[in-house]
């Protein structure tokens, strides 16, 4: 049987224990809240919008006139469309009906694609990456052929 004095001692001990646990909990959450950063990911949406903007720029009304784009513009396709941004990589392949590449355009940090391939298969969610294929009429000279555009878009992180 516990005496009255013993029971009081246990109560006091319990208060100390509660205080100690509360102090530890506050310390842990306080320190972790300093380093906690809430980052909202919008790169997927940006990749979708960028794909649409580049598509509308290259093939308005679904007709892609290759003659309009000079050789110099082929390596700066974002600038050609007035969309220059350091965070983006856009690679465009123009394919004919047989699936052969007849023209290539790109701009941006292609290294981000290489990094993405390295981390691929690690089971990680891959935001800001999008591959988009759609049929177009390709105009070259006076002829028009059916083909398609294959576009790869990578949006890097905003630091």
């Amino acid at each position: 049987m516990i005496s009255k004095r013993g029971a009081m001692g246990e109560g006091v001990f319990m208060i100390y224990r509660l205080l100690l646990v509360s102090v530890i909990a506050f310390a842990i959450f306080g320190i972790s809240s300093i380093f906690y950063a809430y980052e909202i990911e919008v790169r997927d949406s940006e990749a979708v919008i960028l794909t649409r903007q580049v598509s509308e720029c290259l093939a308005p009304e679904g007709v892609f006139n290759l003659d309009l784009i000079s050789e110099d513009s082929r390596k700066s396709i974002l600038s050609y469309c007035g969309l220059s941004n350091e965070r983006f990589y856009v690679g465009v392949e123009v394919l004919n009906e047989a699936g052969d590449v007849i023209a290539e355009f790109s701009q941006g940090d292609s290294g981000s694609g290489w990094v993405r391939k390295l981390t691929q298969g690690a089971g990680q969610y891959d935001p800001g990456y999008r591959i988009f294929e759609y049929p177009v009429l390709i105009g070259q000279g006076i002829s028009e052929i059916e083909g398609k555009i294959k576009m790869e878009v990578i949006v890097s992180h905003e630091f």
Partner: peptide, 11 residues
């Protein structure tokens, strides 16, 4: 007050 902001890419 905003310090970093967020970039847009509209033409």
């Amino acid at each position: 007050a905003a310090t970093k902001g967020y970039p847009y890419f509209s033409k």
